[in-house]
Amino acid sequence: MKQFLFLFLTTLILAGCTSYKNVPYLQNPQIVNDFPEDLPLYDAKIMPKDLLTITVNATDPLTAAPFNLTVQTSLNTSISTVSQPTLQQYLVDNEGMIDFPVLGRLHVGGCTKREAEQMIQERLKAYIVNEQPIVTVRMANYKISVLGEVNRPGSFTVSNEKVNVLEALAMAGDMTIYGVRDDVKLIREDAEGKREIINLNLTNAGIVTSPYYYLKQNDIIYVKPNKVKAKNSDIGNTTSLWLNMTSILVSIASLMATIFIK
């Protein structure tokens, strides 16, 4: 009896340790601390279907005005609906091109924001002389999606165009206790339309040095459920099936009893 009890307790302890090892993130931080190379700063690149806002500023506002097109947008108030001007947004087509006023077709696909700004500045020299105009490029629709075993699944817009996988999970309220942390799926589509699914192990601190640590626009993070959640789901489905069958049988028995009594 004592041997059985000892084996039972030992099994419980080992199972608890095994489960705990699958829960914490970044379990071996020394890998990152001892990493031999300086990690480059991440800078997002412009991709097809990005929406860009581009502003041009100069000392003389009139010289910059032709490059800052506006459109009228409706604004609902408690009294009425009014329209106000907002900056024109530029959709990057599948070839990485945008149609920019005066300058015409510009290839911005694959450029960082800074590269795109410098290119536009160079093109503007023929129209804005005697000064260096200030060009600001922003991505208006930089978003990522998180779904699966997280507390608040959904799509999230990133205002600073820079987000890593851990920040994305934080936006979604972190994983539930049923989320598999060592096999998170990253679904990504590149500028040529090629799709790939990458497995991320978030229990390994080495993820911080991975090229997939920072997310690109339109990336999808999927957290799959662990075996416990899957078993609970099966139990729930089986229980519902049995309850439905029992309810049907009771209804049939009640109907037959009513018929024979009459």
Rank of each mutant, 00 (worst) to 15 (best):
L5P: 00
L5Y: 06
F8S: 09
L9V: 11
T11S: 13
I13N: 05
C17G: 10
Y20N: 04
Y20V: 07
P24T: 09
Y25G: 01
Q30E: 14
N33C: 00
N33V: 13
N33Y: 13
N33M: 10
D34P: 06
L41G: 03
A44K: 02
K45R: 14
M47G: 03
K49V: 03
K49T: 12
T55L: 03
P66N: 07
F67C: 01
L69H: 13
Q72E: 10
Q72F: 05
T73H: 12
L75N: 10
N76M: 15
T77S: 14
S78G: 15
S78H: 06
T81H: 09
T81I: 15
T81N: 09
T81A: 12
V82K: 13
V82E: 08
S83W: 06
S83T: 13
Q84P: 04
L87T: 12
Q89Y: 06
Q89C: 03
V92D: 00
D93K: 13
E95H: 10
D99G: 11
G104I: 15
G104T: 14
L106M: 15
H107C: 00
H107F: 12
K113Y: 03
E115G: 10
E117N: 07
M119S: 07
I120A: 01
E122T: 11
A126P: 05
Y127R: 08
I128M: 09
R152P: 01
G154T: 00
T157F: 02
N160C: 03
E161C: 00
E161L: 01
K162R: 14
V163F: 02
N164Y: 08
N164I: 09
L166S: 01
A170M: 14
M171W: 09
G173L: 11
D174T: 13
T176E: 05
Y178D: 08
G179V: 03
R181N: 07
D183M: 02
R188S: 09
D190F: 08
G193K: 14
K194H: 07
I197D: 09
N199I: 10
L200G: 08
G206D: 00
V208W: 00
S210A: 03
S210L: 04
Y212M: 06
L215A: 05
K216V: 04
N218Y: 12
D219M: 07
I220D: 01
Y222L: 06
K224Y: 02
K224R: 13
V228R: 10
N232F: 11
I235P: 00
L241Q: 15
W242M: 14
N244H: 11
M245E: 07
S247Q: 15
I248M: 10
I248C: 09
L249M: 13
S251P: 08
A253P: 02
M256A: 13
M256S: 09
A257L: 13
A257S: 12
I259L: 14
I261M: 07
I261R: 12
K262E: 11
